[in-house]
Simulated scan of single mutants.
Amino acid sequence: MAKADKDGIIRDRRTGIVLARKDRHPLADLFKDIPMGDGLPGLHMGLPEVEHLMAIHVFDNLGCSPPQEPLYKAVPDRESLTATGSDRVLWVPVATPDPVPVEEADEQIFVADISDYNADQMAALEFQMQQKKIADKMLEQADPHVRGEGEL
């Protein structure tokens, strides 16, 4: 049998284990797009509910404390909605300046006109761009001899 506390937390009456919360866990976003390497796509839980349940498990039931001096912070991934259909984040070192809002960017960048692309062409372009980004990041993180900058 479970009952909601006055703060919206639902606990098992016998064990005290948190089963659910009325609202999203305040630390659930810590489990959003867990970093797997600089510039590589983060481990995406798929559903916000999974992030919420992980936060309940880790912070409410295991009693782990929230990060005190984090090394990384989440910044919105501007390209994620177009590339994946969902809002995602990138984890960057805390000292990284916040991204400049798009409307404040000084430099205008011109790209090919893709307004006549059909859905298949758009999907192929998005896939190709994502593969290129991943390949570039992997090469960037590779040993110098793999990048062609040194000898074995």
Rank of each mutant, 00 (worst) to 15 (best):
P97V: 06
P99F: 01
A105V: 14
P97I: 06
P99A: 03
P76V: 03
S86Q: 10
V89T: 02
T82I: 10
D106F: 10
R88W: 11
L81Y: 08
A95R: 10
I109T: 02
I114G: 10
L81C: 11
W91F: 06
Q108N: 10
T82V: 10
E107R: 06
E103G: 05
D106A: 14
V94W: 07
V92T: 02
D106S: 12
D87M: 14
P99W: 03
V75L: 06
I109G: 02
W91T: 06
L81Q: 15
R78I: 00
D77F: 02
Q108K: 15
E79Q: 15
D77E: 14
P93W: 11
V89K: 00
A95V: 05
A105D: 11
T82P: 06
A74C: 09
V75P: 01
I114E: 14
A112E: 12
D98Y: 10
V102N: 09
P101S: 11
P93D: 15
P93S: 12
P99N: 05
V102Q: 14
D113G: 00
I109W: 03
G85S: 00
P97D: 13
A83R: 11
V111R: 00
A95E: 13
I109V: 03
T82S: 15
I114T: 15
L81M: 14
D87L: 11
A83C: 05
S80R: 03
T82C: 11
F110D: 04
P76Y: 00
P97L: 10
P99C: 04
D77H: 09
T82L: 12
D106Y: 12
I109H: 02
S115E: 08
P101L: 08
F110Q: 00
S86F: 07
V75M: 01
G85F: 03
V75C: 04
D113H: 03
P76F: 02
V111Y: 03
E107V: 12
E103L: 03
V100Q: 12
R78H: 05
D77L: 05
P101D: 12
A105N: 09
Q108M: 11
T84M: 13
D98L: 11
T82Y: 11
P76A: 01
D106W: 09
W91H: 00
A112W: 01
T84E: 15
T82G: 12
D77Y: 10
D113V: 00
P99E: 04
D87V: 10
D87P: 07
D98C: 06
V89M: 01
E104K: 14
S115Y: 03
T84D: 12
P97A: 13
D113W: 03
A112H: 07
V111C: 04
T82E: 14
V75R: 01
A74R: 04
T96F: 13
I114Q: 15
T84R: 13
P76W: 06
S115H: 06
G85T: 00
T96Y: 13
V89I: 06
V94K: 06
P101N: 13
T84H: 14
S86M: 11
P101H: 09
A83G: 05
E79C: 09
S80H: 06
E107M: 13
P97T: 08
L90D: 07
V75I: 11
L90V: 15
V89G: 02
A95W: 08
G85R: 04
D106P: 05
V102A: 10
D98A: 12
D113Y: 05
P101T: 11
I109D: 02
R88V: 04
